Amino acid sequence: MIASTKTLTETHRRCCYLYNRELISYSLAWDWQKKLLQERIDNPSLHDALILLEHPPVYTLGQGASLDFVKFDIDKSGFEVYRVERGGEVTYHCPGQLVGYPIINLRYYRQDLHWYLRQLEEVLIKVLAVYGLKGDRLNRLTGVWVEGVKVGAIGIKVSRWVTMHGFALNVCPDLTGFEQIVPCGIADKAVGSMAQWIPGIKLEEVRTQLAVAFAEVFRVDFIENQEL
């Protein structure tokens, strides 16, 4: 008998709570993620979750990020800065950027971090395609680019195969905050937004398309959830 190589989600769709939020402080969202993650470590049968939101202006550094990529004095700048447990270098969040935090148990999908990163990229690529934009992957770099300009960043943390942190898609943000850092430690690649190609685009319409793309890529059925 030949053993099946299909993952559980290829034969059974998962249920996933969808939390649609507007502007939430980074610290609150971070604590929320950690709570959801720990609940799923303690009880693996819980449904997955996807949080979609925006943050006020904030800089975050991955656990091993270098301060060489920060162009200001963290202690004297007045900027809100967090060093968190995700991978990757420094990045910037602000209104107009759609941030997604999937809290999912990869034991029900595939226990492969490279696969998971590529799936997150695929979600963003599908969203861009809805608007006629071709999202590209670049060799050995995580994220999504349009015409050589980075519009989607990804940074994750996985504990006991449960994920946290996630992706950020620049829809229509003020990009000047990125001038204070070397985004993701990549000095020779510009950061851009969907609004450069689609003037007037609204984050709320992209939010809807992103949920659709996530459900398609990860084969989940959403349950709208209003609890925080």
Rank of each mutant, 00 (worst) to 15 (best):
L113Q: 12
E121I: 01
G177Q: 00
Y101E: 00
Y131C: 05
P95Q: 10
Q226A: 14
I223H: 14
L37H: 06
Y109H: 13
D31C: 15
E224H: 14
E122Y: 01
S66V: 03
V130I: 11
G100L: 06
D31P: 04
G132R: 04
R86L: 01
L67A: 14
E54N: 01
P102K: 01
H93C: 01
F178T: 01
D75K: 14
G155S: 11
A65I: 05
L18D: 12
G177M: 00
F178W: 09
V146Y: 07
F178D: 03
Q180R: 12
Q196D: 12
A153P: 07
W32C: 11
R86I: 09
I201V: 09
G132M: 10
V99A: 00
R14Q: 15
Q33W: 07
M164G: 11
G78T: 04
V144N: 08
L52H: 03
Q180T: 09
V171C: 11
V58E: 08
E80M: 02
K6W: 11
A211T: 07
Q33L: 04
E224S: 14
D73P: 03
E10S: 00
C184V: 14
V158Q: 06
E224C: 09
G100I: 04
T9C: 14
W115N: 07
R83W: 08
L175T: 10
Q119G: 10
C184W: 11
S193N: 00
E122M: 10
T208I: 15
L175P: 12
E39N: 10
A129D: 12
R86C: 12
V162W: 09
A213D: 07
K35S: 05
G87P: 05
T9N: 15
G100D: 07
L53R: 01
A187T: 13
E10K: 02
T142C: 08
I223V: 15
E22Y: 00
T163G: 03
Q38L: 13
S159V: 14
L53S: 07
D188A: 13
E204C: 13
N20Q: 15
S159H: 11
V191I: 10
K157T: 14
R219D: 09
S66L: 02
W161P: 02
T60E: 11
K202V: 08
K157I: 09
F218I: 10
D188W: 06
E54V: 03
V149D: 11
L138M: 11
K6M: 13
A129M: 11
I74W: 05
F69N: 14
N170K: 13
R137W: 13
Y92V: 06
Y101Q: 05
G185F: 02
Y131R: 11
D112C: 10
I41D: 12
A168H: 00
E122F: 09
S66T: 12
R13W: 10
E205W: 05
T9E: 13
T60N: 03
E205F: 08
V158E: 02
S66I: 03
L124C: 00
A49E: 08
Q111A: 08
T91A: 04
S45N: 06
I201K: 02
R118W: 09
G62M: 04
L46T: 06
E122I: 00
S77L: 08
E122G: 05
V84Q: 06
A153W: 08
L98C: 04
H114P: 05
H165V: 04
Q119M: 13
L98H: 08
N105F: 13
G192Y: 11
Y17H: 07
Y131F: 12
T163V: 15
V162A: 10
E121V: 04
L133S: 06
P95W: 07
L8I: 15
P102V: 08
